Simulated scan of single mutants.
Amino acid sequence: MTIQTTRLSDPAVRAFVRAVNHHDREGFLALLAPGATMADDGAEHDLAEWIDREIFSSHGHLEVDNESNGGRCLLARYRNDTWGEMRTRWSFTVDEDGRISRFETGQA
């Protein structure tokens, strides 16, 4: 069963999912701490290049099925125009200012 975005526990993660699903690149970038990093399936990627390719230019969308670790770990169905839909895991590191300093994703 899908968890409504408004019911996600962690405010930064909730805003991240909302920005992805509304294709709000500016809002998405505002959630990131300076120097934020990310990895996909264990491989480090250039964050700006990856989000443009995997989220914004390909109309990415997240439907969260489960959350854990205070809302900082998600199991979700992710889809975009490039890859279709897949079951994914997401984990987030949120700094003391409430901004995301790192996220990791990959197939679940």
Rank of each mutant, 00 (worst) to 15 (best):
L8H: 02
P34E: 03
H22P: 00
G42R: 07
V94F: 09
E67P: 01
D81I: 02
R79Y: 02
R102H: 15
M86K: 14
R72K: 13
A15Q: 07
E63P: 01
A15G: 03
R14F: 08
P34T: 10
F28S: 05
D10N: 14
T5C: 11
R53Q: 10
W50S: 03
T88F: 05
A48L: 02
N80P: 00
H45R: 11
H23K: 11
F16K: 04
D10M: 01
W50Y: 14
S91L: 03
Q4A: 15
E67W: 08
F56R: 07
T37W: 05
A76L: 04
M38E: 04
D81A: 11
A36T: 09
A39I: 01
G27C: 10
F16R: 04
E96K: 14
A19K: 13
I51M: 13
G106P: 05
L8Y: 07
H61S: 03
N80G: 01
D10W: 03
E54Q: 12
P11M: 11
L47M: 14
T37R: 15
D52Y: 10
L74K: 09
L74R: 13
L74Q: 10
W50V: 01
T105H: 04
W50D: 02
L62I: 12
L47C: 08
G70N: 11
T82M: 11
F28H: 12
D24K: 09
H59M: 01
G106N: 03
E67F: 11
F92H: 01
M86E: 14
T6R: 15
S101D: 07
W90D: 05
E63W: 11
A48E: 05
Y78I: 01
G60T: 06
D65S: 03
P11D: 07
T37A: 11
C73W: 05
G60S: 07
G98W: 08
W83N: 06
W90R: 05
L47I: 13
A108F: 08
R87D: 06
A39M: 05
A19D: 04
V94N: 07
E63S: 07
A76F: 08
G70D: 10
R72M: 06
S91P: 00
R87L: 14
T6L: 06
E26T: 15
D10V: 03
G60I: 12
L47R: 15
S68H: 06
I100M: 11
S91Q: 14
E96G: 14
D65H: 15
D24T: 09
R72P: 00
D52I: 04
D46F: 09
H22E: 14
A43P: 00
R18Q: 08
D46R: 08
F16G: 00
C73S: 12
C73A: 10
D95F: 12
W50L: 03
T5F: 14
A33N: 10
A76C: 07
S91H: 08
I55E: 13
G71M: 09
C73I: 04
I51V: 15
E63N: 03
R25V: 03
S57Y: 13
H59V: 00
W83A: 04
H23C: 02
G71T: 08
F28D: 01
A19N: 11
E54R: 08
G84I: 02
D10A: 03
E44Q: 10
R25H: 11
N66L: 12
E63C: 02
T105P: 00
T93P: 00
L8F: 12
A30D: 13
H59F: 05
